[in-house]
Nucleic acid binder design. Structure first.
Lengths: 153, 153
DNA sequence: TTGTAATGAGATATTTTAGTCCCATATAAT
DNA sequence: ATTATATGGGACTAAAATATCTCATTACAA
């Protein structure tokens, strides 16, 4: 549904939303290990989020990354947009027909248009401050999961 | 949203639904050229659909492929299932958290659960016989599009 | 000022998905 | 029988997404 890149970006942003109060910089390696996400990969993703004004970073001994604005002002959709993962939910035809539009609709066009609208508004309505109580959940389960994985290998 | 494989599979099935009345076999190369879809790739996809009882094929001079049952009895969802492209709309967590479920929900869990249900029922409710009038649209536009493309190259 | 721990950035590797090629096999027509 | 035209299926290639590696740069701290 979402690219892994995008899913990781959202996970990390939610982590930050809970962790940083005001301008507390969290090092990426900590986020990566807490969430069980590949460090180098996450670093690039957060870099892109910084370029788009979602996060802000400083490089130093006590450096790291933080949210560039209030968690209330960042939606899931914003992050997807920053990571270029939204055209699927805007313009794109479900059947990938290149010239499908309202004037020349494919079989699925109108149903799909409705679904896209709903999905979009759902993603726009969730800010990084929503359900912060479940973020603990996320971290705990992620940790548990990749501990189980590393135990196997 | 859907894999290309799946989108091609649905396109071809819709084409068949319009083309075959009863046991008329259509050669794959015709479907491919009408829809502007890579022939060899489509052949494999239709092969998989035949294995899953969606289509039926015969190899001969006048051979080709046809629907294995009435177009009314084949839904978009059926094709997605045959091509293994449904887990996204069933179990999978939007944020790709491996252990997310109703008991340990992530931030998006409940909203996403609702969306998934709606997606599913939408996809299940469309049979290959729906909106056959738009299938002509699809073919005309596909043709127009890949003619434009080949003109460029 | 020197060392350390972080990000920035570009190159490279791996995996998955998409797309192609080749040859065997089946069936209808001549 | 032989030929023509289709699918079946395995091997191969290409492109995109995912993941890793290396080194430079920044800023704090001893």
């Amino acid at each position: 549904m979402l690219s892994l890149t995008c899913a990781y970006g959202i996970q990390a942003s939610l982590y930050l939303a809970r962790e940083v109060k005001t301008s507390t910089f969290v090092p990426t390696h900590r986020i990566a290990s807490e969430l069980g996400v590949p460090y180098h990969f996450l670093k690039k993703i957060l870099q892109r989020l910084s370029e788009h004004g979602i996060t802000r970073s400083v490089r130093s001994t006590k450096g790291g990354i933080t949210l560039a604005k209030s968690a209330d002002d960042i939606s899931i959709w914003d992050i997807m947009t920053a990571l270029g993962d939204v055209s699927r939910f805007e313009t794109e035809c479900l059947l990938k027909l290149p010239e499908c539009d309202a004037n020349h609709p494919c079989v699925m066009h109108s149903s799909w248009a409705i679904q896209k609208r709903q999905f979009q508004s759902m993603l726009k309505s969730h800010s990084l401050n929503d359900g912060t109580e479940t973020v603990g959940n996320m971290i705990a389960l992620a940790k548990k999961h990749h501990q189980a994985e590393t135990a196997v290998s």
